[in-house]
């Protein structure tokens, strides 16, 4: 059974249909990439999975449970965590408070301390800046914080929406290293990227999305070699 199963998902904004019957699966332990041009509907799919927007049709199953109509805040305790597009860290809260917010649904203090020390070890800059308001961090550091914050809820499935967007090459590498580390920690990953090259090189499987429809799918390696993918996304 797949950890996440999206069947015939449809999402509309008013009269505009942004996602037109999309189906895909994410198996436990996988890294799955969703690639597509700007406006293809990637963020919409992510928000639909995490419960931020209502669906016009279709079904989403997580861990065998129908979560199609569950509100976002109820999905977090089930093990879904999203690193949203544009990072969306709380700029006016401190770095430490951002991490606390990540652990909002967790009760276990020991578990919290463990994850926190993992995060601070993985990104010493966050430890150093823990008392600063997060708005003072650089874009790359904010992305480190956003990814760390997502880990604080002890998720099984992490959704990452364009985590490398707008970052310097150095931080792009850090982001993809961190995705691999999260996966090694046992987290299942669904990552949306415009940086198709990087995403496909770490993905077990990938889907290509074009104007609200999935047009191609295959393993990361297959997709990297695919002429159509090369032409459209690997410039």
């Amino acid at each position: 059974m797949a950890l996440l199963e999206v069947e015939n998902l449809e999402v509309s904004y008013g009269l505009i249909k942004a996602v037109k019957g999309v189906s895909f699966t994410v198996e436990k332990g996988e890294i799955v990439a969703l690639i597509g041009a700007n406006g293809a509907g990637k963020t919409t799919i992510m928000h639909a999975i995490s419960g931020l927007i209502p669906k016009a049709g279709g079904k989403i199953t997580y861990n065998g449970k129908d979560v199609t109509n569950l509100q976002a805040h109820k999905l977090v305790p089930l093990g879904i965590s999203q690193v949203p597009e544009g990072r969306r860290i709380f700029q006016e809260l401190t770095v430490a408070e951002n991490l606390e917010m990540g652990a909002y649904t967790r009760k276990d203090k020991k578990e919290f301390d463990e994850t926190l020390s993992y995060v601070y070890e993985r990104f010493p800059i966050l430890k150093e800046r823990r008392k600063q308001v997060a708005g003072t961090l650089s874009g790359g550091e904010q992305q480190m914080l956003a990814m760390s914050r997502a880990l604080m809820s002890h998720p099984d499935l992490v959704l990452l929406d364009e985590p490398s967007m707008g970052l310097s090459p150095l931080f792009v590498n850090t982001v993809f290293d961190m995705i691999k580390d999260m996966n090694a920690l046992g987290k299942t990953i669904l990552v949306v990227e415009q940086n198709a090259n990087k995403a496909l090189s770490i993905a077990n499987r990938a889907y290509v999305l074009e104007t609200g429809k999935i047009t191609l799918s295959g393993t990361g390696t297959e997709m990297l070699a695919d002429e159509r993918v090369k032409a459209a996304y690997l410039g």
Partner: peptide, 8 residues
Amino acid sequence: HAAELMGV
């Protein structure tokens, strides 16, 4: 929305 994604 970000707060909702934290489970709030």
